[in-house]
Design a protein around this nucleic acid. Structure first.
Length: 773
DNA sequence: CTAGGGTTAG
């Protein structure tokens, strides 16, 4: 019986067991060499209990037997047993660890102190000379983030091979130190150590992180020259690197050229398409992956969650979630839980997002950020702010950059200045005020909360190399009606060499339109295309139509729409309809509404606009017609609401809302104000009442508009002459606009109303917007 | 007969 050969070549457990019996019957168990080979046979075939059995019953164990047993434990992930086995080895008389013992034992180390003890033993026994041992030491130190010790071990090596250098490079990669990793890599090249597939698969992610495409490509060339393509680690790293650097075509070429693909290959290419905003291709590849018989893992599902969110596919979203639950991943992985919250939020299903969040057994700061961002993006600004406060106050979680950029837009949205300022304070405290993204959100927040000067002061101190801060401050001036300032900032931006993007031009064009700067607006539209090569999107066209229409050039606006290279969307026609309404052109308005009701039949706002126009000129049959259409299509008016912040709390009022605790007092105040207003010449304009009711009922409806309630509440709950600032989710009603002029005069208060379109500054009986009603 | 250093995440 040639046990030696049989043990080395035996392919399955089915054959191994009878072989084992024969081995015992033949009385060869005392042969330590053969026993160890049997142990390794079981280890190779994954039968841990049999490996242990052979080891423990072997009467003669040499150091190789011990080493093999330790390896066997490590192979099965039983690290503490491996270390225990090593300790028994040390305690066994006549046995000394050798150079083979340390690499595998160091792999099993689960704590830094154990590793350090091991290091001193290695040193005492003179094994630092062995490159395998030293590389393991470097690696174990890196695993525990102890890069100083890793570098020391590296520096103390009397002789280094390629593997030692690789250990050092990967040590830095493991700890996210891309710059240092690259430094070591470049040193390797200088010292002519060369590189192999291991070096390359470690350094490619660094190229991605440092956005160094050139280095990545030159490494790719080296890979092809040396025929390293076939290494799956290298190919996977190439795919990932190209995908992260927006070279998806190149990533795909590598992917298509691979004869063997594993889970990581598929995950990398799927994530690439997902990140590039091509969810349908990502989904197609996911299906292909399943066809190849590859089982998805957590990372696949994280990408898939984002894919279905981008596709807006609710049905698939639920099945993704079900899959995650079936595999029990929602219980022990925070990342996948966060991905589920994010997916539901992006699918605008905020309830299930909340439920997943609440059921998560462990949460990190990103879980909170995801929920807060989910609320913000779904218009639930108050929930976003409250969740932020809860997170800080009761959970003691410190906000991160992501938290601030999620919660600040919520403050901007409802005009929560005091809350926003508190968060500003917090960001200074944690040193994030200097972060460009946070600072941009702060600029936006101050501007949208009516503090344009503060926004400007902050803007001055922000690093201005990217478009973000510029876009925010230009838009800020735009909504406040300061078109000239916006244009000035735009030229500053150009002077500083910052290349404007499409968002810049949306802000700029809308700034021109709010300020009535027609010629400048036209010019911007030209510059955008000629100087900056930006193709106008429908948003830009909508701004232009708004600009021309608002200025009374309805014919020009109409011609402009007809000349568009894109199919006009509801935003474009909506802008035109708005212009018709401002200039009382009912015929054109009616014509355009037909387009609108076709492109965007669900948007009730347009029906209301047309109906308002008919009512204004007393065409009641027109009003009835629109109303009937709304009923036939089973549409519901978007509920109007206004918010005001008093004592760091945002109060929200809906139209006709009587549930506020101070409702009686608010109602009384409105009565007092109405009387004073009428004595100064205010006449209610019932054309803004769409309901078909009696006169006095109409007046009641106007005085129950949410903006009126919010203003009255502001008056009774703040000191005299305190400026009042409110936010209204829709366009402010024309009658309320007129009424607010009177209220600002009577109460001697500055009243700032931000509606879905712009700011209205009311002071001494007039409004800054100066137009429209 | 036994050994080191490698790729994907919100």
């Amino acid at each position: 019986m040639d046990f030696n050969r049989l043990f080395l070549t035996c392919p399955s457990l089915r054959l191994a067991r009878p072989l084992h019996s024969l081995f015992i019957v033949a009385g060869r168990t005392g042969d330590s060499l053969l026993s160890t080979k049997l142990l390794n046979l079981y280890s190779r075939l994954g039968d841990l209990p049999s490996s242990i059995l052979v080891f423990e019953h072997s009467p003669a164990k040499n150091v190789v037997s011990w080493n093999s047993m330790i390896s066997c434990y490590v192979r099965h992930g039983l690290f503490s047993q491996a270390v225990g086995c090593f300790r028994r080895l040390l305690a066994t008389p006549g046995i000394r660890p050798d150079a083979f013992t340390f690499p595998v034992t160091l792999k099993a180390c689960q704590d830094l102190d154990v590793a350090k003890n091991m290091h001193s033993l290695v040193f005492k026994m003179g094994f630092v000379w062995n490159v395998f041992v030293s590389a393991s030491l470097i690696h174990v130190y890196s695993r525990f983030g102890s890069l100083g010790n890793a570098e020391k071990a590296f520096g103390e090596m009397p002789y280094r091979d390629l593997g030692s250098w690789n250990a050092m490079v990967s040590g830095f990669c493991l700890n996210g130190k891309a710059v240092e990793a690259l430094r070591v890599f470049e040193e390797m090249i200088r010292e002519e150590v060369g590189m192999d597939k291991v070096t390359i698969s470690s350094i490619l992610p660094v190229c991605a992180q440092l956005e160094n495409l050139l280095m990545g490509m030159s490494i790719h060339v080296h890979v092809i020259k040396r025929g390293l393509n076939s290494d799956i680690f290298v190919a996977n790293a190439l795919i990932d690197m190209y995908a992260k650097l927006d070279c998806l075509d190149e990533a795909r070429r590598v992917f298509d050229g691979m004869e063997e693909k594993d889970l990581i290959t598929w995950n990398s290419i799927i994530a690439g398409y997902e990140q590039a905003g091509n969810p349908s291709m990502a989904l197609k590849l996911f299906d292909m992956m399943k066809e190849c018989g590859i089982e998805p893992d957590i990372l696949t599902l994280v990408s898939l969650a984002s894919v279905v969110a981008q596709l807006g596919d609710n049905r698939r979203g639920r099945s993704v979630h079900c899959y995650v639950m079936r595999r029990g991943w929602d219980g022990d992985d925070i990342v996948v839980g966060n991905a589920m919250v994010d997916m539901y939020a992006k699918l605008t299903n905020i309830k299930p997002a909340q439920e997943v969040f609440n059921r998560m057994p462990a949460k990190d700061v990103i879980s909170w950020n995801t929920l807060i961002a989910g609320y913000s993006q779904n218009g639930l600004a108050n929930e976003a702010i409250e969740t932020y406060e809860y997170m800080e106050k009761y959970e003691g979680v410190a906000p991160s950059q992501g938290t601030l950029v999620s919660v600040l837009p919520a403050c901007s949205h409802v005009g929560a200045l005091q809350q926003g300022m508190r968060i500003h304070g917090r960001s200074i405290h944690i040193g994030l005020e200097v972060d460009v993204f946070v600072a941009t959100c702060l600029v936006d927040m101050y501007a949208k909360c009516g503090r344009l000067q503060d926004a400007m002061l902050l803007f001055e101190r922000v690093p201005k190399r990217s478009t973000g801060p510029w876009n925010a401050i230009i838009a800020g001036h735009g909504v406040h009606g300061h078109g000239d300032k916006a244009l000035g900032l735009f030229s500053d931006m150009q002077q500083e060499g910052v290349k404007p993007d499409q968002v810049t031009f949306v802000s700029l064009l809308s700034a021109c339109s709010h300020a009535g700067l027609v010629d400048q607006g036209r010019q911007c539209f030209q510059i955008m295309q000629t100087t900056y090569g930006i193709k106008p999107a429908t948003k830009h066209y909508a701004c232009m139509v708004d600009l021309l229409g608002r200025a009374g050039q309805l014919d020009a606006a109409y011609k402009f729409i007809k000349s568009m290279s894109l199919r006009p969307d509801s935003g474009v026609w909506g802008a035109f309809l708005g212009a018709c309404r401002i200039h009382g052109n009912v015929e054109m308005g009616a014509l355009v509404s037909n387009y609108l009701f076709e492109v965007d039949p669900e948007n009730v706002g347009y029906y209301v606009l047309l109906s308002n126009m008919y009512a204004k000129v007393g065409k009641w049959d027109g009003v009835d017609e629109v109303r009937a259409l709304v009923r036939r299509r089973h549409l519901q008016k978007t509920p109007g609401w206004s918010s005001i912040e008093v004592n760091k709390k945002v109060h929200v009022f809906f139209t006709g809302n009587q549930t506020h605790p101070l409702y009686e007092k608010i109602h009384k105040e409105i009565g007092i104000l109405s009387a004073k207003m009428k004595s100064l010449g205010y006449v209610p304009d019932y054309s803004f009442v769409l309901q078909d009711v009696e006169e006095d009922e109409k007046e009641h409806i106007l005085t129950s508009h949410s903006e009126r309630l919010a203003i009255a509440f502001g008056i009774i709950s703040t000191l005299p002459r305190t400026p009042i600032q409110i936010y209204k989710n829709l366009r402010v009603c024309g009658d309320c606009h007129n009424a607010t002029k009177f209220i600002s005069r009577i109460t001697e208060r500055e009243i700032i109303v931000r509606d879905s379109n712009r700011f209205h500054h009311f002071k001494d009986g007039s409004c800054s917007c100066g137009d429209y009603w």
